[in-house]
Amino acid sequence: MSVLEIIDLKTWFQTQDGLVKAVNSVNLRIEKNERVGLVGETGCGKTVLSFSIIRLLQPTTMIEGKILYKSKDILKLSEREMQKIRGKEIAMILQNPTTALNPVLKVGDQIAEAIWLHQGLKKKEAKEKAVEMLEAVKIPLAEKRANEYPHQFSGGMKERALIAIGLACCTSLIIADEPTRGLDVTTKAQIIKLMKDMTKQRSMLFITHDLEVAAEICDNIAMMYAGELVEYAKTDDVFKNPLHPYTQGIFNSLPNRGLKPIKGMSPSLIDLPSGCRFYQRCDYAREICKNRHPEMVEMENGHFVRCLLYD
């Protein structure tokens, strides 16, 4: 039984400028203890996809499809039932550590409240466990730090504190949204190690811009482009044999592989092209790509790609 199975998920926002189709027909499966990397450019819908899973989008959002968590469709759960899942079964580590911690509450208390809520401990015991969590994410002088406020923490420490909140009670699935963004090289390496060590017994959806970071942590990689998945494979396969021109383009833009950025910009999610969404930026684009929207096809065992080159 998969921990998470997303089936044909669409997440759209009605805005004044039009319908923003942020997530389009996404299918994704995460097995027990599996770590899946979700990689894509800014604005391609990674965060919206994760908020759809944990159901923290405003009520006016249009969500279609199924999100099966241990075979249960969480899109059908009531808010009450969802609250029992959040933080306990599925936890989310938000993207921006400078804004994701409450400035007027002590860091220790922000961890403790999750523990107190889900594990039925007394406040004092929860606080002790919170200190243990801070130790686990390698914050020095954890006892003292637990009584400090977020503004007294450095960027890397805030990220650690956020990870501690996410991992405090969560046993099953962690969604980590860009936990390494904006960190210096050393801190980044430490956070990567931490994420790897701490999620050994858990499943994880790891969101990042950075293929190399994904490669260090994840078993499988899903490439996302303009609201849809365009390639999915084992990490090794993606690195040895990237199939989609977009994935290849991302590789070519890496510093050690030529630093050649993909030309152009991704299409607006309000006005998506009817054919291939990568058409305008693709070096292999043909006439047919302009009007035909490719389906996801399985090329080799477990290696999926959405491109007419392989049709």
């Binding site: 944990i54 933080g87 804004t99 994701a100």
Partner: peptide
Amino acid sequence: GEDYILTARAKGLSEKYVLFKHVLKNAML
């Protein structure tokens, strides 16, 4: 609309708790 309110909700806290413990104190400043 702040991110830390989303963090609070992502912990599974009830709406009431989020309101009283996380929103009001900041909104009063």
